[in-house]
């Protein structure tokens, strides 16, 4: 494709401006409403200049144990991330190195595990967790989030392991390293960016998750997404607090996009785009 001429360039920028306004307005609304005084929340035309207030944030933490819910989310997300990275990268290494014609099927089987509708397995989970006393504990969420995060880690890490030069591993083997040592001292450090990317994906997925957290936790292990939603179910909708909570929840995802957007293609398209 060659460079567009002046007129085409103007047209591209105009269209793109419209697209950006449409796609970024909701995010602007979350951010601005979270610091807007309640009386002007729905004022029309929208107040663009106002003295920001942090009362919604104060209220958020004062009326609910929001800090505890954040901690719950953090425990579930970090726990699942550690668990998934450990098991996922070991499996990915094996899948990357074993030459067998059925290996692709195994990789696809693992990947397909993250595509099943959560709602279809939530009933069995509810019953199993209720019977084992895990209902409303962070451990239940860690286990469940790992079912989605392990396949993702395997998928991402396999790509990174495939790129590690085999010659380095062979050299280490000749020096008398065992397989676990090769993996730990040679291969894994070279695939470190992959670990970082997988970790962030696992974390964001778990942090954002809602259905399982809603159905499998109560007051003890409740996460931030469920807590924010609960400001809606009361008789008067607390829009300020909802927006303040929403803004806190969306921060990790936005940071991720702005810092490592080039990995998003690999992580989200599951190999559709090479």
């Amino acid at each position: 494709m060659n460079r567009p001429n002046r007129r085409q360039a103007v047209l591209v920028y105009l269209l793109l401006a419209v697209v950006l306004i449409v796609f970024l307005t909701p995010i602007y609304i979350i951010a601005s409403s979270s610091v807007k005084p309640t009386p002007i929340m729905f004022q029309k035309p929208p107040a663009m200049v106002f003295t920001p207030t942090f009362e919604h944030y104060t209220q958020l933490f004062a009326t609910r144990p929001f800090a505890k819910f954040m901690l719950n989310s953090l425990i579930a997300a970090l726990g699942s991330t550690v668990f998934s990275l450990t098991f996922g990268s070991l499996a990915a290494y094996a899948i990357s190195r074993i030459r067998h014609k059925r290996m692709n099927d195994v990789a696809f089987w693992i990947l397909s595990m993250r595509m099943f509708p959560p709602i279809a397995v939530v009933v069995p989970y509810y019953i199993i967790f209720k019977a084992s006393g895990l209902l409303d504990t962070p451990l239940a969420l860690i286990i469940i989030y790992s079912t989605a995060n392990i396949p993702l880690t395997v998928w991402l890490m396999k790509g990174f392991f495939d790129e590690v030069p085999r010659a380095l591993e062979e050299a280490a083997a000749i020096d008398g390293y065992g397989l676990l040592q090769i993996f730990w001292y040679v291969t894994l450090p070279l695939a470190a960016p992959g670990l970082a990317v997988s970790a962030v994906f696992c974390f964001i997925f778990s942090w954002n998750e809602f259905i399982f957290a809603l159905m499998l936790t109560g007051s003890n292990a409740q996460t931030v997404t469920v807590a924010v939603m609960s400001f809606w179910s009361s008789d008067a909708v607390q829009w300020g607090r909802i927006m303040a909570g929403s803004f806190i929840i969306l921060i990790p995802g936005v940071i991720f996009v702005l810092t490592c957007q080039r990995w998003l293609v690999r992580g989200l398209t599951m190999g559709s785009v090479k």
Binding site: I27, N208, I242, M243, G253, L268
Partner: peptide
């Protein structure tokens, strides 16, 4: 890059902001 942001937002938050709209 800016256009990728909506994807990384929790679906509940997406629901809530559109409910607001």
């Amino acid at each position: 890059t800016l256009l990728l942001i909506p994807m990384m937002i929790s679906p509940v938050i997406v629901g809530l902001v559109w409910l607001f709209l």
